[in-house]
């Protein structure tokens, strides 16, 4: 049997034509997005590269001479890693809660998630600020319960910065995990139960291995996006928590060294791309978002 069918299958594969009409005819569809990316991304990036190379590349060496830069670089990476870890844990729990909830609660949880995605990052950061101010909403609430007599010291501290950043990034960690959870066949969970597995073994042996790639890809996305954090740490973390973006802003606008600022930007974008490409190779991040 196989010897009879194999040659025919091969002949089919050889004779297969690409779908649709000839390729040249629909290639023009590629131009609008390409032009958009050239104008919106390529052009500014090229300008930055040119700026940074004005002094013959000395700006790159100078960038590392700026004492705030290396410090902020380490701080940004640590911050992104902490935000990533927190969103991965909370995002997975949130996604599990959404999938396990009855319909009305699921609707509420999803609405909260989508609304926060639709709200400007600026508005959300100011919201957290109002909450965290020494005599802000949090203080008012604790006072109501009789728990706070002193003004709380959360605003413009490292601890005050994280809840806001995690809240901003949470949807990006929840959505891919939720998709993965929803694509698990319910009968698999019934099967695990039937064959004697309790809730913990079912989660560990059946659910977790199937959502882990999505948890990782959500985490990578959050990490990459967190490297560019600017507004939220600036508002809530205070001057002691300046990120790379903050240092770049200072070089551009206050120190009047746009070439150093440009060099730093290129280093940040380049580093981010390296991280993303590595992660994509390892965890196939882009597939989870396609």
């Amino acid at each position: 049997m196989p010897s009879l069918t194999m040659p025919r299958a091969r002949a089919d594969a050889r004779g297969r034509k690409p779908l649709g009409v000839s390729r040249a005819e629909h290639r023009w569809l590629l131009w609008p997005p390409l032009i958009f990316f050239a104008v919106a991304l390529g052009f500014p990036l090229l300008t930055l590269v040119r700026r940074s190379l004005e002094g013959g590349g000395a700006a790159y060496a100078d960038a590392f001479e700026v004492p705030a830069f290396t410090g902020s670089l380490v701080r940004t990476v640590v911050m992104a890693a902490v935000v990533m870890a927190l969103t991965m844990v909370l995002g997975s729990l949130y996604a599990l809660a959404v999938v396990a909830s009855p319909t009305w609660l699921r609707f509420g949880l999803l609405a909260a998630l989508v609304l926060s995605l639709w709200t400007s990052i600026m508005v959300r950061s100011f919201g957290w600020m109002l909450l965290e101010l020494p005599r802000g909403a949090l203080h008012w609430f604790l006072d109501l319960l009789g728990l706070a007599d002193e003004p709380i010291e959360l605003y413009q501290t490292t601890a005050g910065m994280y809840p806001a950043m995690v809240a901003v990034m949470l949807p990006f960690a929840v959505l891919p995990v939720m998709t993965a959870l929803q694509s698990i066949d319910r009968q698999q969970l019934s099967a695990a139960t039937i064959f004697g597995a309790g809730p913990w073994l079912t989660f560990r042996a059946v659910t977790w291995p199937q959502i882990m790639p999505s948890v990782l890809s959500g985490g990578v996305l959050v990490f990459v996006m967190s490297l560019g954090f600017y507004v939220t740490p600036l508002l809530l973390g205070g001057p002691g928590n300046m990120t790379v973006s903050g240092v770049i802003n200072a070089q551009m606008n206050q120190a009047n060294r746009p070439d150093i600022g440009a060099a730093m930007s290129i280093l940040l974008v380049g580093g981010t791309m390296v991280v993303y490409l590595l992660a994509d190779r390892l965890f196939r991040v882009s597939e989870k978002w396609g």
């Binding site: 066949d185 099967a191 039937i194 597995a197």
Partner: peptide, 17 residues
């Protein structure tokens, strides 16, 4: 509970992991 009934089931979708 189902875990303690000692039944074997072949599911419609097979539900293989």
């Amino acid at each position: 509970p189902p875990q303690k009934r000692n039944v074997g089931v072949v599911f419609q979708s097979y539900a293989l992991f």
